[in-house]
Design a protein around this nucleic acid. Structure first.
Lengths: 243, 243
DNA sequence: TAGTGGTCTAGACCACCAC
DNA sequence: TGGTGGTCTAGACCACTAC
């Protein structure tokens, strides 16, 4: 008897195979953040390993930020948490020290199209959906975003009603398409505003521009989104933690 | 008998107190990367806990990047590893696609002085040493750095012979002053070149500039360095991983 | 009060490395 | 071959949460 693991290399340690099996269940949408996943004792029985081995597998997923333990209550699927992107890109206070209000988001376009070379290369497909958004702080447009997602993972995205979207995109990815973004890579550079971007951001053509290119990956490390975001270089601030 | 832990809150779990005790030993410079630290069985005996508890404490320090396990050999202090900073700031290839050579570093100044407000605020002291460096790729100056370190932790830094410095600063911090940099926060913003910076970087005054402000922390999370680095915004690229 | 995760133990056997 | 870390077990007791 193969201990009930999904089809993984039997030479791997039990906790690795269990971790991968749990990851697959998360990716399949078997669990929601509202209810605890099966208890450690229950998983130990189901997979015929000791509780200690379950703990080690769960530890790994907690470390990756996929699961969250609540003592006395249970272990829960954790909703993606690194979504306060605007706060990473701009200071919370304006140049005059006044606190800015909540970031807003305006959807401008959703359509099936061909992506730019960088997007198709990052995503590994040319069959993508394009999303264009304008994000604002205190009614001032600050960030113009072009986002590309693979149609294979997001079938029908372009026909969702506008009411399905909140200010953040990643929760929508998860709730409607079961795509859970786990990590991302950002590249920050500086350029100059094109006519289109300048018009959207209410700045002048050729004004200095901060450009952030991001590739996002799901729990199984497949690329699920490529985006390019532009904002005025004046007042731009990108925070990063290095470990 | 208090199990031989350093003076920490006895209400804390054993593995936490052991982890803190080991961190203190690392910070005190008791171990070097060349020799394994005491084995898990030996630490278990010394602190009168089980091997499993030692493993959990060591796991934490491995996760923080302080220690490194080598199966069959031992557990070693890990030399700081995130030092390829130039490669984080600029692409490896020039605009023409040609690969660039190894980054070089030229020390311009070391002196005891008063730091700018940001440095004294970040470091919590006005008694600092200032370091000025110019970093180059393929003999082209690309990054101008002003670095401030607290004199209390780096007494005599300004009188070290030039031969004590390699291309990287953090190994010198550790080898001569026992300061081990564990994490840092970067803030990337946009500015314009002052006369001094422009001259060093061979660009024009008021040319667009990428500015990176970094605060670095040691293993006990005390700030040990504040630096501001400037490079031409043209060709600048900052990479960041988000989890 | 029952069930959950949190801590800790004492041992077993394995894989790997250095001598 | 001996010692190291790597995996895994089967249990104990504690702290916390929900009902």
């Amino acid at each position: 008897m193969s201990k009930g693991f999904a089809t993984t290399d039997a030479r791997l340690p039990a906790y690795v195979r269990l971790r991968d099996t749990l990851t697959a269940r998360i990716a399949a949408g078997d669990w929601t953040p509202d209810w605890p996943i099966p208890s450690e004792a229950r998983l130990a029985r189901e997979f015929d390993v000791s509780v200690g081995t379950v703990r080690k597998a769960v530890d790994g997923l907690v470390g990756e930020g996929l699961l969250e333990r609540r003592q006395g209550s249970g272990t829960y699927l954790r909703a993606p948490s690194f979504n306060a992107t605007l706060f990473r890109f701009f200071p919370m206070r304006g140049g005059d020290g006044a606190p800015l209000s909540i970031p807003q988001s305006k959807m401008i376009l959703r359509s099936v199209t061909e992506g730019p070379a960088e997007a198709t290369e990052a995503l590994g497909t040319e069959d993508v959906i394009k999303i264009v958004r304008l994000r604002s702080l205190s009614d001032q447009p600050v960030l113009f975003e072009e986002i590309y997602i693979p149609r294979a993972r997001f079938a029908g995205f372009e026909t969702l009603p506008d009411t399905a979207f909140g200010p953040l995109l990643y929760p929508t990815y998860f709730e409607h398409f079961g795509v859970l973004v786990k990590r991302a890579t950002d590249e920050v550079s500086f350029g100059r505003a094109s006519d289109v971007v300048a018009q959207q951001l209410h700045i002048k053509t050729d004004d200095p521009l901060a450009v952030i290119c991001r590739t996002a990956f799901d729990v199984e490390d497949r690329p699920v989104e490529w985006r390019i975001a532009s904002g005025s270089a004046e007042g731009f601030l990108y925070r990063s933690e290095i470990n």
